[in-house]
Design a protein around this nucleic acid. Structure first.
Lengths: 167, 167
DNA sequence: AAGCAACTGAGACTCAGTCTCAACTTGCAC
DNA sequence: GTGCAAGTTGAGACTGAGTCTCAGTTGCTT
């Protein structure tokens, strides 16, 4: 379970080499940090964490490196709620989608093979060649429902998430 | 098929009244415009169209009215690709999801009852009370595939859409 | 017709993300 | 190991969608 990030770093280096790009100290540090975060994160959060650790990396480099990581397949960009981008590292091939609680902001990940199959079938019917998909289901999680939370209108989600995410 | 927007205007007025809000000339003009657009649109596009017609409405009012329309259920906010918000008016209860071609930027709408049922089942299993969902499948449409378009990496989608949408 | 709460426009502001460019690394070639 | 071209970096200016403020205006209830 708790494995080192060396494998990911090696894969990233391979990718960079293939593209004629270089593995720098900054990129290495970012990869190490990203693979120590076992949850969704934002670009600015990453920037902040690096600063906290005393590793000076500029905003531009963070964004540039995230772009490379997404291209290399090591990191995925996800939409949570209706907000800006979030990222998550890819471990193995565990594609999943998200249930997002509009009351507490919590995110439940799920994976469903039948859902995947059904989407493939829909694409086939429309002669569409899929490469990627993105499904968010908004609503209220069990514990919030017990606390009597009413489902929110979808448009409130964004506000809620922003409130939660900013310091 | 071609019906007037009076029904929608009446529904909007009802909603406003319930909330102690007012139906103004600006709001009326925006509703009329929105229900004459039979496709997805952006807030700035709407602003531009109003200007073109010589109806002076500020950016703030456009955003404020869209928010009210989303709350009232007359307009839906959708994500297309990984870009900023798009909107579409709601006619009847035709919920649908989107196949988005990363080559030409085209959007194919689809609705699938089984997909809806399956999502409800997944939510039930997780004791999650859904209110709304959002599914985009990115890939290449039939005609682009015939033209030999390769599926793009997901991260390119955004760039492509931006290029296409701006004048 | 009056009064007041709600609404509007102009433009300042915010915030995520992008771009520029001079100075600095990396890594390959010798 | 040294040289050096190509790639990379940081600082900060910039962009663009969306929000906020506030003084002046308008819709609606009485």
């Amino acid at each position: 379970m708790a494995h080192s990030v060396d494998r990911e770093l090696a894969r990233f280096q391979d990718f960079l080499q293939q593209q004629g790009l270089k593995l720098t100290a900054e990129r290495t540090a970012l990869v190490r940090e990203i693979f120590s975060i076992h949850y969704h994160f934002e670009a600015d959060e990453l920037l902040f964490k690096m600063k906290e650790k005393g590793v000076k990396i500029s905003r531009a480099t963070v964004y540039r490196t995230l772009e490379l990581l997404v291209k290399s397949g090591l990191v995925r960009r996800v939409h949570l709620g209706e907000d800006h981008y979030h990222y998550e590292h890819v471990s193995g091939n565990s594609h999943h989608d998200h249930l997002i609680c509009t009351a507490c902001g919590g995110v439940i990940e799920f994976h469903d093979e039948e859902l995947e199959r059904l989407q493939m079938a829909i694409c086939a019917k429309k002669k569409f060649t899929p490469t990627f998909h993105n499904l968010q289901i908004l609503g209220v999680c069990d514990s919030c429902r017990r606390k009597g939370q009413q489902p929110d209108a979808p448009d409130r989600v964004r506000m809620i998430q922003q409130t939660r995410l900013r310091k």
